[in-house]
Design a binder for these strands. Structure first.
Length: 370
DNA sequence: AATCTATCCAACCGCTTTTAA
DNA sequence: GTTAAAAGCGGTTGGATAGAT
């Protein structure tokens, strides 16, 4: 038997909120703040609000919050959602965090009702951000390619073959992808077997990677830290570059500067940005030099870059790395060519009305609202 | 004008993660 | 260290509405 919700258990009201209920909730929050939602049902008698705390929280977050933007999404927001989704997947809260005044629910609905359809219409699989043709290609003639590429990592293959050529059988996928996937899942603080990772790294002489740790079950954080230190010593690319070529050609992150993944380090904090540089310069530096896949090619580059600086500041490293890898492989496969893939050919929103532009407010203040 | 269909979006559900006791 | 409660999150549902027939 399905578990009943808290609202059912307590016989609380459900469904759409009335203006009176909104007002009551607003009054409650004005009086007590929004720190403790569980207090709402406890105060139900005095409030006359027969809603569970969960429902109240959702109503506040998605509708009543004063900092909500609402209204139609601008072209810039749409582009950003697509880009972030290609990096983060269905992490709606993380995507929404980069869109001032937008909620995860709003972004999710916008994606499902509009962007998804739009991408499909343009022959792009919204789930993979690759051309639909590549995903629907049969396995004909692909087995030979996979077998021929057996000694290479998938990333290596992607640098050589197009995605269409790399649609292997399910078994081949398992065989080919597993080691790389294991190596590339750089998740904060997770202990994982690193055999495959070191093996892949060792196969690339002079890849700039430090020696593998003695334990194969050490945390990746330690290795990231070692990489970071080495890169700082050796230099190169301002000590901050994510070498996409190295990544896609060698199947391992080559000369990647990755700070301790166990920290909440942000991209901007490790981008080697001079404190003296202006925000615009810093943002442009990061986005244009180190994160080329983020270049949407719109007009108003400074504003866009400012915003992406915020994006970079928020992304956790694990997400960044994973997303970067996906972007790199996609780009190498010819599937992702920057914004062009998504651009309907109408100028990419560069001529969008100023009023529609994303308002660049401090995303931290938004994320700290509760 | 009535009915049907498609779309949008607010709200819910249930699972996971975080926090507090 | 354990457990329960709270909070957070993503997927899904269902009602309202617009557009088509």
């Amino acid at each position: 038997m399905a578990k009943q919700s808290c609202c059912h258990k307590k016989k609380l009201r459900r469904g759409l909120w009335s203006p009176e209920e909104d007002e009551k909730l607003m009054n409650h929050i004005a009086k007590y703040g929004h720190g403790c939602w569980s207090s709402v049902p406890k105060l139900a008698d005095s409030l006359g609000l027969e809603r569970c705390g969960k429902s109240c929280r959702l109503r506040w977050i998605n509708y009543l919050r004063p900092d909500l933007k609402r209204g139609t999404f601008s072209q810039e927001e749409e582009d950003l959602i697509i880009q972030l989704h290609s990096m983060l997947g269905n992490k709606w809260s993380q995507i929404a965090a980069q869109l001032p005044g937008r909620t995860d629910n709003e972004v999710k609905n916008f994606w499902n009702s509009y962007i998804k359809k739009k991408l499909r219409d343009r022959g792009i699989d919204p789930a993979t951000h690759k051309p639909l043709a590549a995903d629907t290609t049969t396995t004909t003639n692909t087995t030979a390619v996979v077998v021929a590429a057996a000694a290479r990592s998938t990333a290596t293959c992607r640098a050589v073959f197009s995605d269409a050529e790399l649609v292997p059988t399910a078994a081949a996928v398992q065989q080919q992808e597993a080691p790389l996937v294991g190596a590339m899942q750089l998740v904060d603080g997770i202990k994982m077997p690193l055999d495959d990772y070191w093996h892949a790294a060792a196969a690339v002489p002079g890849n700039g990677m430090p020696a593998a740790p003695s334990s194969t079950t050490t945390t990746l954080s330690a290795y990231h830290h070692a990489l970071s230190l080495q890169q700082a010593t050796v230099g190169g690319c301002g000590g901050a570059a994510f070498d996409m070529d190295g990544l896609s050609h060698c199947g391992v992150p080559q000369a990647v500067v990755v700070p301790s993944a166990s920290s909440s380090s942000t991209l901007t904090s490790i981008a080697g940005l001079s404190p003296a540089a202006t925000d615009a310069e810093q943002s442009a530096n990061v986005a244009a030099t180190n994160l080329p896949w983020l270049d949407l090619g719109h007009a108003n580059p400074v504003g866009t870059m400012d915003h992406y600086a915020g994006v970079l500041d928020e992304l956790r490293w694990s997400d960044y790395f994973d997303g970067a890898y996906q972007a790199a492989t996609a780009t190498q496969g010819g599937a992702l060519q920057g914004q062009c893939l998504y651009d309907g050919g109408g100028g990419g929103g560069g001529g969008k009305d100023v009023d529609d532009a994303v308002q660049f407010v401090d995303v931290h203040s938004l994320s700290n609202w509760c």
